[in-house]
Amino acid sequence: MADRVGAQKGNLMMLSGSFYISKERSSRPQGDDSHFICEEKQTIGLADGVGGWNSKGIDAGIYARELMNNALMAILTQPDRQVDPMTVLSEAYSKTKALGSSTACIITLKDDNMLHAVNMGDSGFMLIRGGVVIYKSPIQQHSFNFPYQLGYSSGNADRPSQAEVIKLGVEPGDVIIAGTDGLFDNLSEDQILEAAARGIEQGLDPEDVAWPVAQRAYNVSMDGQAVTPFMQASTLAGKRHTGGKQDDITVIVSRILDM
């Protein structure tokens, strides 16, 4: 599933595209992830429903999809070029009533030519400039493989106010790669850069950059011998995990352009 949109905002614009691969393509094509790209407000968002709910007979993707739909509705009511990600996340959380829980990341380009973002849990994004990662959002987790999450998680009381608030200056030519943990658990920063490099250098449309990144993450997730960030993190936590981590994979790529 791919998407591509772009619109002017101030002196800069953010052109975005996406690619999504469900872990269970045939039986559950919607998977547990959800995302949106809002052309009018220059805002992107993604969420990853916590898969543990599936073992309780609850579709983990429902909460994530409702959360992102409510986020999009909240964005559309905000003034042009002045979207506040924390306000959006808080409103979306308050209106999401489905049983479940989810991580979330919302990123907007304001008319101050700055990226404003909130990130809850282990989804997130990278900012690339001149082929180098100059920023990566930190992971928020209570313990290994237990990320901060919004919703009705047993023993957890995370709220939007606990999300990481991020503000970054951007320049024409910058590239943002956002993703759920299906991306970042399987590929290192260097591997993501390698998968995206050709498309970035050739100026391909964002969804055509997102596709090879998502596909490489999927291939690694199915490789029982791969050395992955998730495997390395499990070792540090005193756990044991070998190879890739099978998961839903969402990738959103955004280019910053000078208008």
Rank of each mutant, 00 (worst) to 15 (best):
N186A: 10
I192S: 00
K9R: 15
G238C: 07
A233H: 07
M222P: 06
S16H: 04
T77C: 07
M231Q: 13
Q8G: 04
N69P: 01
I256M: 05
L72Y: 01
T228I: 10
G182K: 10
F19W: 12
S94W: 14
G61N: 05
Q215F: 03
Q78N: 02
E171V: 04
Q202Y: 04
I176Y: 07
N113R: 09
L72C: 11
S90L: 06
F146L: 15
V132K: 15
T87R: 12
E39I: 04
A98N: 05
W53M: 00
D181F: 04
V133P: 01
I107E: 01
S221M: 05
Q162Y: 11
E40I: 02
Q8K: 14
D247S: 06
S16N: 06
I21A: 06
A104L: 08
V88H: 03
I107S: 07
N219K: 02
G10N: 13
D174H: 10
R129D: 03
T228C: 03
S34K: 00
M13Y: 11
I21W: 13
G182W: 13
T96D: 10
M259P: 00
D32L: 04
D208E: 13
Y93D: 09
I128F: 01
L183H: 05
I177V: 12
G10I: 02
A197D: 08
S102F: 05
F19E: 03
A163E: 11
K95H: 15
N113T: 07
D208R: 15
H241Y: 09
M13F: 14
